[in-house]
Design a protein around this nucleic acid. Structure first.
Length: 203
DNA sequence: CTCTTGATCTTCT
DNA sequence: GAAGATCAAGAGC
């Protein structure tokens, strides 16, 4: 088994207060953490940061029914519908009113792959480990996240996030699929991971 | 490998 | 009416 594929030890479970600081710091530090929803999930390998001061964020134009969780306190889950099809998950960060969040873009599956395969088979025929959670929509489907999970606390069941026990080598780059504030290098990930939604340049 | 298209929810123009 | 923090399938090279 490649060293890259070991299941890392679980660190202490992160509390809501972990998210009450700069969204870029949180984005870097959750890389390598283990995200579980009802015991299903794995290692976070790719995220992006968003903040209400830049136009790519859903919160840029102020609160709406969809994004209001972003304007609330940090340490909660913001779930939104993407392209009318997918459910994408974010960790709300900083402070009430900051409307900052970290989008979970890719996870290396380590826990309950059986359930992930069962869920993802509904959307794709030729499935493999790499296709389970390598993209924000895929993460939502594999982990069984829907609008029902919107505004749930990040430190209370069914959600658990465990701190990393080793610090991976982190790559950063521009965010994917946006046209506004496209120059900000607010995408972070595990350098060279095969579970990224897309490689980083020079990976 | 790249390109195109359909899926169809929320928000903005 | 159009665009968007996306994904999968199919065509073509």
């Amino acid at each position: 088994m490649p060293a890259n594929d070991r299941r890392p030890a679980l660190g202490k479970q992160l509390k809501r207060s972990f998210f009450a600081r700069n969204v870029l710091e949180v984005a870097r530090e959750v890389i390598g953490a283990t995200l579980l929803v009802d015991g299903v999930g794995g290692t976070i390998v790719e995220v992006e940061a968003y903040h209400h001061t830049e136009p790519a964020a859903h919160s840029y134009r102020g609160p709406t029914p969809r994004n209001m969780v972003m304007f609330g306190p940090p340490g909660y889950l913001y779930v939104y519908r993407s392209y009318g099809i997918h459910w994408c998950m974010n960790f709300v960060c900083e402070a009430e009113g900051s409307a900052a969040a970290v989008l979970i873009r890719a996870v290396k599956p380590t826990h309950r792959l059986d359930l992930m395969y069962e869920r993802r088979r509904k959307y794709i025929q030729n499935l493999n480990d790499r296709l389970l959670c390598s993209g924000p929509g895929r993460v939502g489907e594999a982990l069984g996240v829907t609008i029902e999970h919107n505004a749930l606390s990040l430190d209370i069941s069914p959600i658990a996030i465990h701190a990393r026990t080793e610090v991976p080598e982190i790559a950063s780059g521009v965010r994917i699929g946006i046209t506004k504030a496209a120059e900000l290098p607010w995408r972070y990930g595990v350098k060279g991971s095969r579970f990224l939604s897309k490689p980083f340049p020079k990976d």
